[in-house]
């Protein structure tokens, strides 16, 4: 009973905030609604007993990805009149995308009514082990059966990261950065010179 109520509460909140993501005029508000949607999706994960996934969703998407999103969107200089001016020009494209999405949804519903698709055979390999925690189950599966896929995903992400760094890296020789080890190594003996200059001659460094 209470599970059903909470499920529908969170599900309704996910859908409502997802709608507001596209309805909100201000992009910053859109990102904030998106964060709310992530958060409620995490709550749904908790309801089905996948608390580890829920926490990962919050840590990765809400805690890191959405912050960077917000960071970028906040710095946009938005001119609302310009946004509205582009409406007529972009309307055909928008309608086309909407039609494609609608057809996909429709086909999906028809296929669903025709009967579910069998994905793999129920051999008990994927059945959750009851007396084990979520993390232990995922770890056991990830590091045995799906080890190659897991490592491959890691390598792909690493390559993507290296690529992003290489693309944005630029050396600027004119900028003088701080070299802390050099500063620490400096001693008074080599930094101070005692001289007695002639009057009017000045000091040569």
């Amino acid at each position: 009973m209470i599970q059903t109520i909470t499920f529908y509460l969170f599900a309704a909140l996910v859908i409502a905030s997802a709608c507001f993501v596209i309805l909100a005029r201000n992009p910053v508000h859109s990102v904030l609604w998106l964060i709310l949607a992530f958060f409620n999706a995490a709550a749904l994960m908790v309801l089905v007993g996948a608390e580890f996934i829920a926490m990962l969703l919050v840590i990765v998407y809400v805690g890191a990805v959405a912050v960077l999103f917000l960071f970028v969107v906040m710095m946009l200089d938005i001119d609302f009149s310009e946004l509205r001016a582009g409406f007529v020009k972009n309307a055909p494209l928008g309608v086309a995308i909407a039609i494609v999405l609608f057809v996909e949804l429709f086909v999906g519903l028809v296929a669903y009514n025709a009967g579910g698709l069998e994905l793999g055979t129920p051999d008990g390999m994927n059945a959750p082990v009851l007396d084990r925690s979520n993390i232990a189950s995922i770890g056991a599966l990830l590091y045995s059966r799906y080890l190659f896929l897991f490592e491959a995903a890691g390598v792909i992400l690493l390559v993507a990261m290296v690529g992003a760094i290489v693309l944005t890296l630029r050396h600027r020789p004119e900028v003088r950065g701080q070299d802390i080890s050099k500063q620490v190594k400096r001693r008074p003996e080599e930094a101070i010179v005692k001289t007695r200059p002639e009057v009017g001659a000045g000091v040569k460094l």
Binding site: I35, E51, F52, M55, L56, V58, I59, V62, G63, A64, V67, S133, N134, I135
Partner: peptide, 17 residues
Amino acid sequence: INIGLLYILAISSLGVY
């Protein structure tokens, strides 16, 4: 809960908002 530390990490990552 058995994911206590992850929970703390998740909640403290919200603090920035």
